[in-house]
Simulated assay, not measured.
Amino acid sequence: MSDERDRDRDRDHRFSEGQGFSEEYEDFTLDPPELKVDPTKVDPVDSRAITDMLDQRNVGSDEVDTEDLMEVGLSYMQINRFEDATVTFERAARFAEDNSLDEQEAWVNKGVAHAELEEYDEAIGAYREALRIDDDSEHAASAETNLAYALWEFGESEEALEHAERAVEIDPRFPQAWYNRGFFLLERGLAEDAVNAFDNALRLGMRNAGLLEEKARALEELGEYEEAEEVQEQADELREDAEQRLVEEYGN
């Protein structure tokens, strides 16, 4: 199992990378409107200006605003202070109304922060707590998708597929869930089912180099070499375009 996982890590692309949220997913954003400082315009030497501001907002008070805590946690995520984010999201969960959507969202976000730290055991616990609150809410599909990822990283690949399947059942219009389902199916040698899952993700608006690369890999396993080559070319073009945009953005 360890050799197989090492090979997976050597690939340029792995599936959800711990977050499982598309760019359009409104319930999890790394750009909270209340953050008054644009991190991309702050001198890295003076990045403490952001973190000091966040620490001030995160100090205890008699009246705790759960939404503010969530925004602080998301802001910590934005500047890669994931340990602080886990603490902040846990505080948000503790101060939120018991078994509310706010509490559930805080637990999901806490799991994401732990996953960024590769603390998959803690991430699994956070996602399970979120699902304990409600396994069929607007946040449940994201919890299931991220739980699947964390379980896979933790070596529980069979259970990971079960949760990926569950995510699709909860929200069949969540492209990331279809992508992850396709990844797990492909890992189990079910290439045809994987292609169908990847196609669903594409139809739902998810289009990136990683997804196309996985689809190309599945097509190769089916012996569809010509189509696989075409899809891989599309993936290469998307990756080149993304790299060019980065060069242009940071080269100016």
Rank of each mutant, 00 (worst) to 15 (best):
Q176P: 12
I124R: 06
G189C: 13
L69P: 03
G189I: 10
R5F: 14
E187N: 03
E4Y: 13
I50G: 00
K41W: 05
H13R: 12
K215Q: 09
D8I: 15
A49M: 14
D27K: 09
K36N: 12
Y127K: 02
L147S: 06
Q19C: 09
A96Y: 06
Y120A: 01
L35R: 00
N252M: 13
N200I: 09
K110Y: 02
T66M: 07
L211V: 04
I124C: 06
N208L: 04
I79C: 01
R173S: 13
Q244P: 06
E153Q: 11
K215F: 06
F198Q: 02
D136L: 08
E165T: 08
E249A: 11
A96K: 01
G20P: 04
E17V: 15
S61G: 11
E17Q: 12
E187V: 12
V72C: 03
Q19N: 10
L30E: 01
G155D: 13
E105V: 10
R203N: 15
I133Y: 04
I124G: 04
A150P: 03
V37M: 06
E214C: 09
M53R: 10
A201V: 07
S16G: 08
A115D: 08
T88R: 03
E156I: 09
P33S: 06
A194V: 02
A123F: 02
D10V: 15
W152S: 13
L117E: 01
M1K: 14
D43Y: 09
T86P: 04
D134S: 11
D121R: 13
D135R: 14
A93D: 10
I133H: 00
E129T: 15
A96L: 08
M1A: 15
E248N: 09
N58Q: 04
D241L: 11
E90Y: 14
V59F: 07
A191F: 07
E97I: 12
F89S: 08
S100D: 06
E23S: 15
T51H: 05
V45N: 11
D3N: 14
D8P: 07
D43H: 11
G73Q: 00
A130D: 05
E122K: 07
A235Q: 00
H139S: 13
E138C: 10
G189F: 04
Y127M: 08
E116H: 11
L222F: 10
R207H: 10
D236M: 00
L74G: 00
Y149E: 02
R48N: 11
G60W: 09
A177Y: 02
S16Q: 13
I124T: 02
K36P: 07
E156Q: 13
L202S: 01
M206L: 15
R245H: 12
K215A: 01
Q104M: 09
Y127P: 03
A228E: 05
A130N: 04
D241R: 12
G111Q: 07
Q19E: 11
E240S: 01
V231K: 00
R217W: 06
L101E: 07
A85S: 03
S137F: 07
E214M: 15
V64I: 15
D52R: 05
D121I: 12
A143Y: 06
D121M: 10
E249F: 14
G20C: 11
Y127N: 05
G210W: 03
E67A: 08
A92V: 08
Y120E: 00
A201N: 07
E103T: 07
Q78M: 06
